[in-house]
Simulated scan of single mutants.
Amino acid sequence: MNRIKTREIAVQLTYQMMINKEEPSEAIESFKEAFEGDITEIDDTYLNQVVNGVNEKKDQLDVIIEKYLVNWKLGRVSKVNLSILRVALYEILHFEDIPNKVAINEALEIAKKFSDEKSVSFINGVLDKALKDM
């Protein structure tokens, strides 16, 4: 099971739920129906925990994110970056088996893939400040 790939999918589904106003179960089901490849490579338990957890704790996660935005409002953060931040913070807060540095590094790798270079620095800054306060 590939947690790195699954984390990437969790970010994509979190983004998809924002855009399509979907529930986690709908997003996960439509992903699985459309998935091309070996579905056994996806960590199903982790995917369900993260996507459902981010959805349930969205308001709490957004309060933390907003606290560490410098001269920004939450509404100005791109949906892609917000998805990355929510997934990373959820991991930091709720997965003791994932080291915080791993959660942050993986978030930065996902940002490099789906966002731009400025976003990588932005996400790193928010997560780093949040982590120092925890």
Rank of each mutant, 00 (worst) to 15 (best):
G75Q: 11
D62A: 01
K79H: 09
V51Q: 07
E36M: 12
V51M: 04
E117R: 10
E91I: 10
I123V: 11
E41T: 15
M18C: 08
Q60V: 15
L47I: 09
L85F: 08
F95Q: 01
E109N: 15
K58W: 06
K57T: 08
G75K: 12
D97P: 10
Y90I: 06
L61A: 00
E22I: 09
M18S: 14
I84Y: 02
N124D: 09
G37L: 00
N55C: 11
D133L: 05
I65Q: 01
N20K: 13
L74D: 04
L85K: 05
I39S: 13
R3Q: 12
P24I: 02
D38G: 08
L47T: 07
G125I: 01
N105I: 03
N48T: 15
M18E: 11
V80A: 06
I19T: 01
M17A: 03
Y15H: 14
Y46G: 03
I9N: 03
L61H: 00
V126K: 05
F31T: 14
M18W: 13
A111G: 01
I104W: 00
K58L: 08
I123R: 02
L47E: 05
A10C: 12
M134H: 06
G53H: 05
Y15K: 14
L89Y: 03
W72N: 12
G125H: 03
V77G: 01
E22N: 10
L69Q: 01
G53F: 04
L127I: 00
I98R: 00
E91C: 08
D133Y: 11
N105F: 06
L74H: 04
K32F: 15
K67L: 06
Y15A: 03
N100M: 10
K21R: 12
E91Y: 06
K113T: 15
W72H: 14
G75P: 14
E23D: 07
A130D: 02
K32T: 14
A27N: 03
H94R: 08
T14G: 04
N20R: 14
E22A: 08
K79D: 10
K129W: 09
V77L: 00
E117H: 07
A111W: 02
P99T: 02
V126F: 04
V54G: 06
E23A: 11
R3I: 13
L89P: 03
Q60L: 13
N2V: 07
Q16L: 11
E56C: 07
Q49M: 12
A111F: 00
D44L: 12
S115A: 12
L89Q: 01
N100F: 13
Q12H: 15
V80L: 04
N52R: 11
Q60F: 15
I9P: 04
Y15W: 14
V126R: 05
Y90E: 03
A27I: 02
Y90P: 05
E117A: 10
A111R: 02
E117G: 05
S30D: 15
A111Y: 05
S119E: 06
N124C: 07
K32Q: 13
W72C: 08
I104M: 02
Q16M: 10
I42R: 07
D62L: 02
D128T: 15
I64S: 04
K79Q: 13
L69F: 01
K73L: 08
M1W: 13
W72L: 09
N100W: 13
L127Y: 00
K73T: 14
D133R: 13
T40G: 07
I123G: 01
